[in-house]
Write a protein that binds this DNA or RNA. Structure first.
Lengths: 225, 225
DNA sequence: ATCCTTTTGTGAACCGATGCACAAAGTCAC
DNA sequence: GTGACTTTGTGCATCGGTTCACAAAAGGAT
């Protein structure tokens, strides 16, 4: 069903998509330093990947390099940005203004990538009305109305675990189909809704696993016996 | 080299390690609700994975289930905790007390998993001495001394991008071999040092990519599913 | 003690991702 | 224009991870 060797085959591998932001970050740095073109080898080093992988990834977007020369930095930034959908402006809402919600609201990496924090919600009347990173905290009762009014299409959940599923259900009912979940729970959503999760403690646990290995392991096992 | 079919083969796949914390979280919830045993099917649902995968993952740790019955919740919690190295206490230091650093210092998910925030550092004299989540912020000059004195083995970097590599070099020189990096840069470290990175904006970019697809994509290409 | 039910643990097929290695395609110097 | 050189784009082998599907193991009923 799919044309086997189409230059802009729509089926970009998930693993590639996950690396495109990495390339973009490296390219932005180069553009700032005035670099005009870059080879796959150099860009791969800057992004922390292997150059064959980088070239294969980029080839999924099309043939944007010049053999013998490399890639034009500006042009590649544009192509990757467009592919990721960063050439448009995304209205993002953050729900939950605890420590993490505040940190996210003030995080520069969002704004600089085409994301606009359009609203911030909390259930606690104590913080509703507060000013967080230049935004007025709104009451969670306004969730659906504000999402619709401001065209929010991506919601970031930074609520306590116990509240996450309920808020999730509400934003989904309001038409949101992309959710970034920081609450340590598995969210249940209908088909067609994308949920990505970030669990800060999981990464630390993975590090602990490897650290323990270096130190000798639970049974000081050298061999599996 | 390695015994091919040993029940406690030390070589646990990376993908499995990354899911163990997920199982652990689900199991903790069950233990709290008084559940004594759980089938792979139920646990898989609670953790948001497929049950065959769950069983294969657990089989890498050993044979801890009972056919026809399932897994003993308490026992499995212990086995996974031990495998991940969470039965010991890990001293963690956080460098950088911006919004994110503060959020991390106050994050309950660390403490409840065997991680102890042993120190918090910043370079800004303005915040040094402040109290963050019950901890005294120390000056970055004290980095090496404090790491050694308090036996810190894992460092969390929440510094600005520009400072991350330098701090990284210093903690590595001080003997730290596990680093969790929140700064949006690729860190260069010697062999034997583990770096895991969390880039909050990458997840959002991946969501944007898929959201754009749903909406029609850059060239209005209809996805063949 | 035997049969029936449940659920684990795993062999084997499958699938996607990785990395090597090289031909093709381009640049640059002369 | 020619030849030397550089670097891309990709075919192919390989690898690790996922999923299916089922035999083996345990418990409960009679």
């Amino acid at each position: 069903m799919k044309s086997p060797s189409h230059p802009r085959d729509r089926g970009i591998p998930e693993a590639t998509v996950a690396r495109l932001p990495l390339y973009l970050r490296a390219l932005h740095g180069m553009a700032e330093r005035g670099v005009a073109t870059v080879s796959s080898e150099d860009l791969a080093v800057a992004a922390g990947v292997n150059s064959a992988k980088l070239r294969k990834d980029l080839s999924h977007l099309g043939s944007y390099g010049t053999r013998g020369v490399g890639y034009d930095v500006e042009y590649l930034v544009y192509q990757i940005s467009r592919e990721l959908g960063l050439t448009q402006d995304w209205a993002v809402a953050i729900v939950g203004v605890g420590n993490l919600g505040r940190a996210l609201a003030g995080y520069g990496g969002f704004v600089s990538r085409g994301f606009r924090i359009a609203a911030v919600f909390d259930a606690d009347p104590e913080v509703v009305g507060d000013d967080i990173a230049g935004l007025n905290v709104e009451h969670i009762d306004e969730l659906e109305a504000v999402i619709e009014r401001r065209g929010v299409s991506i919601v970031v959940l930074a609520t306590p675990a116990a509240a996450a599923q309920e808020v999730c259900d509400r934003v989904v009912a309001a038409g949101v189909t992309s959710i970034l979940n920081f609450a340590p729970v598995v969210l249940t959503v209908p088909d067609g809704v994308d949920v990505r999760k970030v669990d800060l403690s999981i990464e630390l646990q993975i590090l602990a696993f490897h650290e323990q290995r270096k130190a000798g392991g639970p049974l000081m096992a050298v061999d599996s016996q």
